[in-house]
Design a protein around this nucleic acid. Structure first.
Lengths: 221, 221
DNA sequence: TAGAGATTGGTTATCGACAATCGATTGTGT
DNA sequence: ACACAATCGATTGTCGATAACCAATCTCTA
């Protein structure tokens, strides 16, 4: 019988060419990873999460598979999905890549020039990020931080490069970026965004790159 | 009753902690993409491929989803999976990234030094690749070429960087790398591997990087 | 006691089925 | 002839069920 199925309310009540259940599951799990609701090293069951969300296993499974491809989860056969726990070596792998790609990307943007409009937009982000830099507000802060950095990179126009950088940053975030809060370095890190943007707008590539290099060291343990 | 299920014979008859059906499907589709059996721009049905392989839709679907994550396919909602067709802009995105990452990676390997053993292994690959450089042998040749380049990069020990480079090279390969064969540049490209390896072994980073830079221009249209 | 082998508990990997959805095609009215 | 609505065919996205599987626990024997 054509009974109305369990509506499966996602996040937004909006109905706009509805995203697939898999997509919703991806963002839910992703958020749980970033917020620490899912802890590194622990194994989680796709089926269990599926029934929590009120959907069947398939879309949730696909979501966790996708996150495994991105290196945020590990598939443990017939056991579940383990949240990755970056070893010191892993962390340096990610760090090295970010130093190479992310720094170069922002440097190139400086070379290429930034429109006044984009400059304004970025300046706003610097402010809101700094305002969000409170230890009790880590999750939101990290989101703003991510937005600012990705917005700079996006100006280069290389979508693949942006995706790669986003993924690397996500990997950094999962395995505790909490040493920032612990050490009260949160505001210090946010405060560097201003000079970085200034250098970017002035088109000083060398300066931007050295500031970015220094800035990235905050993501080291 | 514990009845023997449909055996679902994969490719290799080997039974060694059997890979998942999804994994088998991934390599099958991947090969089809590289060989041109699946053509850029065309849409293929996961279910159709599933019944061709004698398995259900789920693992094949997961495989094609994974390849979509990697940028080799595009999901077209309720229509199927389209083989990506790189626009000129897309091709330059990939090219720019390879120039940045792949060249740097090989350069760093030169700095770091290569063991005699590894050098031997690479030298063998140079030979077999050159031997495979016949226009009627494109698929095999491309496989050897890939193996040589990835083996160099692997020596750096950054697994994530290797994966990224592998993915970028795969993207280059899908959308016809056939201009090589067409223009008879195949042997010319393979012949550059020797000097590259020589420069690598001699630890001359600058030389390696400039040779690699030149070499990559073969992957441009 | 110690160790091999059976049992258990929980999870996935895979299956087959079906409604929702999309693009193309056909049909209709002006 | 043309715009627009209804229909059609194909494919996915999602579902619920189940056997295969892994790790850990328990049992039994030497």
């Amino acid at each position: 019988m054509t009974e109305q199925r369990n509506p499966v309310v996602g996040i937004s009540g909006l109905a706009e060419s509805r995203p697939t259940l898999k997509d919703e599951a991806v963002s839910i799990v992703r958020r749980a990873l970033m917020s620490g609701d899912m802890q590194p090293g622990k194994i989680y069951s796709a089926n269990a999460l599926a029934s929590q969300l009120g959907v069947s296993n398939s879309p949730v499974r696909e979501a966790m598979m996708a996150l495994s491809e991105k290196g945020l989860l590990e598939v443990v056969r017939n056991r579940g999905f383990r949240v990755v726990e970056l070893s010191p070596d892993d962390q340096r792998e990610v760090y090295d890549l970010r130093m190479l790609i992310e720094v170069t990307a922002v440097g190139r943007v400086a070379d290429q020039g930034v429109s006044t409009e984009d400059g304004q937009r970025l300046a706003t982000m610097v402010d809101t990020t700094l305002a969000a830099a409170r230890p009790d507000n880590m999750i939101d802060y990290l989101e703003r931080d991510q937005e600012f950095h990705l917005s700079m990179v996006q100006l280069l126009g290389n979508t693949r490069m942006t995706k790669i950088i986003e993924n690397l940053r996500d990997q950094s975030r999962v395995s505790g970026s909490y040493h920032l809060a612990e050490r009260g370095l949160l505001v210090a890190s946010a405060a560097e965004h201003g000079p970085i943007l200034a250098a970017l707008l002035s088109g000083n590539r060398n300066l931007v790159e050295s500031l970015m290099t220094e800035h990235l060291s905050y993501s080291l343990p």
